[in-house]
Nucleic acid binder design. Structure first.
Length: 477
RNA sequence: CGGCGUGUGGCUCAGCUUGGUAGAGCGCUUCGUUCGGGACGAAGAGGCCGCAGGUUCGAAUCCUGUCACGCCGACCA
């Protein structure tokens, strides 16, 4: 039998998707568990992905006029409680500090689950005149939410994210900023993460605690479940009234500001894994791959092989994130290892190649191999990385489209949920009780009311009352 | 918070039913041979069996308690 010896094979995604995910995270060395439940070590390779996300997203923020700041991780209880809906939404998952050193604190302090209240407190002092507006601040930080069930990247008790918080003079300005940031997220996901997303608005039930409107980008994972990948909230003047954030306008009248907030987290890494990964492990889009090209010398003890590898490494380093694997492992081991880590391209350099003045390039996404002359290597690698980036997006989009179905009536809806998974497009009456019934009966939630509405009929898919909106439904992470 | 499950070298696990000086594979170290899809040989290092009580001459093993982690639900990025 030509059966290869498989050392510690990962679980197939078709057998058990959740186990597959856990295996990939562990074997690709993205994270490790710690002695605090739900808190993970993000290992160098995983953190490098986050740094690439951070850098490229931050660049887009800066282009959009965003300034970075840093606020404390502690919020006094009294401050958290100023906005009623907000505190009710977050209270069940807040971690509290009750002691400082050996003495009880006079007032409990919470570890930020999100920083709206701190920003509001800050803005109430910072904003006086219409000339002070707008303020477009963002912070990169971690937040803590005491979740019951945790999974690496998808739901941890402490996670890394960015949270933007803005104040504006008018409702129109706030709305424009909310949508602008959602568009930045969507473009980023599609162009950098190769992850297609649906843009839309959350229902009243699903919106952020304290928000007037929540916009979202929703992605479909390989197993047919949805992932809320980023949100942008318009707060109107609700927080401003709770926190007394006012400015004097040109007519010398006091006005409340209008606010927004928006965020994406390390959950995006979970999205990358579940959108692009396969049974050989992680598959990284070149734009977020810490190593885009791995050089693998074959018979590296032979005269000239290592020299050529190092020569190519030095040359390619100018244009790509490239490394050479010169460990003593066998080539087959290295191949499998690099596939597990999702490295987009592998370049094999052996005695035969060197004699012929060429190398073998192998793509992670489809396994295709080709031989390329050393002189053409850099050019070809650039082309291939570009092509992989595009192919991954196309493949993910094709998968999402193939798993997005229209349900015209309740029979169709339940059939899809029970037998096919994926997104369901259906008409909805807009009634929250109906939304709750749908969830209880099927486990499906409203993912969003997409900006791009289609008319699929006149009546609600569940209750038959007149339909108000076309909604994406699905089971979600 | 409910259900299920698991805690034994770095990892995956066996041993537990029927108590008697702690095992395997992988990984790791050193040396040598290898190298085009997870190579091989030789010699080594490494564990008070999650924790605390109890039973016993004797506990990884039996009893009680406790903690932790994982998965599935409900809640949530």
């Amino acid at each position: 039998m030509a059966e290869k010896k498989k050392v510690e094979q990962i679980t197939s995604m078709d057998v058990d998707f959740a186990q597959w995910y856990t295996d990939v995270v562990r074997k690709a060395e993205l994270t490790d568990y710690t002695s605090v439940k739900g808190c993970m070590v993000i290992k160098p390779y995983g953190y490098a992905i986050w740094e690439l996300i951070q850098r490229q997203l931050d660049d887009r923020f800066k282009e959009a006029g965003v300034e970075n700041v840093y606020l404390p991780m502690f919020i006094p209880e009294s401050l958290l409680q100023k906005e009623k809906d907000h505190v009710e939404g977050f209270a069940p998952e807040v971690a509290w500090v009750t002691k400082g050193g050996l003495s009880e604190l006079p007032e409990k302090i919470c570890v930020r689950p999100t920083s709206e209240t701190l920003f509001c407190d800050f803005y109430s002092k910072e904003v006086e005149s219409y000339r002070d507006l707008p303020k477009v601040y963002n912070q990169w930080c971690s937040v803590v939410r005491w979740e019951k069930e945790t999974r690496p990247f998808l739901r941890s008790r402490e996670f890394l994210w960015q949270e933007g918080h803005t104040v504006h003079a008018t409702a129109e300005d706030a709305e424009a900023r909310t949508v602008q940031m959602l568009n930045i997220y969507a473009d980023f996901c599609e162009e950098v993460l190769a992850m297609p997303v649906i843009k839309g608005r959350k229902t009243e039930k699903e919106k952020f605690a304290g928000a007037e409107a929540t916009y979202t980008i929703e992605a479909l994972m390989h197993d047919g479940k949805g992932l809320q990948s980023g949100t942008s909230h318009n707060f109107g003047d609700g927080f401003a009234k709770a926190f007394g954030i006012q400015y004097q306008d040109k007519d010398n009248k006091l006005q409340y500001v209008h606010q927004t907030s928006w965020g994406v987290s390390t959950r995006l890494i979970g999205g990358i894994i579940m959108v692009h990964g396969d049974d050989n492990g992680l598959v990284l889009p070149p734009k977020v791959a810490p190593v885009q090209v791995m050089l693998v010398p074959i018979q590296q003890a032979k005269e000239g092989v290592l020299d050529k590898t190092n020569e190519l490494l030095a040359e390619l380093k100018k244009d790509f994130r490239v490394k050479a694997d010169t460990t003593d492992k066998s080539p087959g081991y290295k191949f499998a290892e690099q596939e597990m880590r999702g490295i987009p391209l592998r370049v094999e350099i052996g005695p035969r190649d060197i004699a012929a003045g060429q190398a073998v390039i192998c793509r992670r996404d489809n396994g295709e191999k080709e031989t390329v002359a050393f002189t053409e290597l850099s050019k070809r690698i650039a082309e291939l990385l570009d092509d992989i980036q595009k192919s991954l997006y196309e493949k993910a989009k094709a998968h999402r489209d193939a798993n997005t179905r229209v349900a015209k009536n309740w029979d169709e809806f339940t059939d899809i949920i029970n037998n096919k998974q994926g997104f369901i497009k259906a008409m909805w009456c807009g009634d929250q009780d109906c939304e709750i019934d749908i969830k209880e009966e099927t486990g499906a939630t409203t993912r969003c009311m997409p900006f791009e509405q289609e008319n699929l009929g006149d009546v609600c898919v569940h209750c038959g009352k007149p339909a108000k909106k076309m909604v994406y439904f699905g089971r979600a992470y």
